[in-house]
């Protein structure tokens, strides 16, 4: 039986009727059309579906939509500012941190969450923060550089 839930996604309120067996990632992608959140493994191994829920990055493939009821969600679509790219996105573009791009939304969100907690992370902290987000293209080097670059820009 469907249940009514309330989600606040990227500063917008939604009321939705969902089945208990629907995952948050599926509701974001297929009900709300927020397809920036990717599905790479569906069992919490890859981090492509990372969203920020109540301030913390989580695998949205492991969260039931009903579990997210009343919570505040940020997806990649909520990172871009009205004025254009978020500084972190600018760093990802400038430093060449994007290749196939499938891990990128999750990477950006994990990185953003890190910088919110720790504006000047060292390399080990950066690598740890993105260690649940697999990337097969870049070898992570330029992703780490991009996060570092953004941290420098924002704390200067």
């Amino acid at each position: 039986m469907k249940r009514l839930i309330k989600l606040r996604v990227n500063d917008k309120d939604y009321e939705l009727a969902v089945e208990p067996n629907q995952t948050l990632v599926d509701v974001l992608r297929y009900t709300l059309g927020l397809t920036g959140t990717k599905k790479g493994c569906e069992v919490g191994d890859c981090g492509s579906c990372t969203v920020i829920m109540d301030g913390k990055p989580v695998n949205s493939c492991l969260v039931l939509a009903v579990q997210a009821n009343g919570r505040v969600i940020r997806t990649i679509e909520g990172v871009e500012a009205d004025t254009g790219l978020h500084p972190l996105q600018v760093s990802f573009v400038d430093k060449g941190a994007v290749q196939c791009g499938f891990c990128t939304p999750g990477m950006v969100l994990s990185a953003q969450s890190l910088l919110e907690r720790n504006p000047k992370p060292n390399e080990a902290e950066i690598r740890t923060a993105i260690s649940g987000n697999l990337c097969r293209c870049t070898g992570y080097q330029k992703i780490v550089e991009a996060i570092h670059d953004c941290s420098e820009k924002m704390t200067r």
């Binding site: 913390k56 695998n59 649940g132």
Partner: peptide, 9 residues
């Protein structure tokens, strides 16, 4: 345990 994303759940 797991990864940072897993540890948050």
């Amino acid at each position: 345990l797991g990864s940072p994303l897993i540890r948050n759940l």
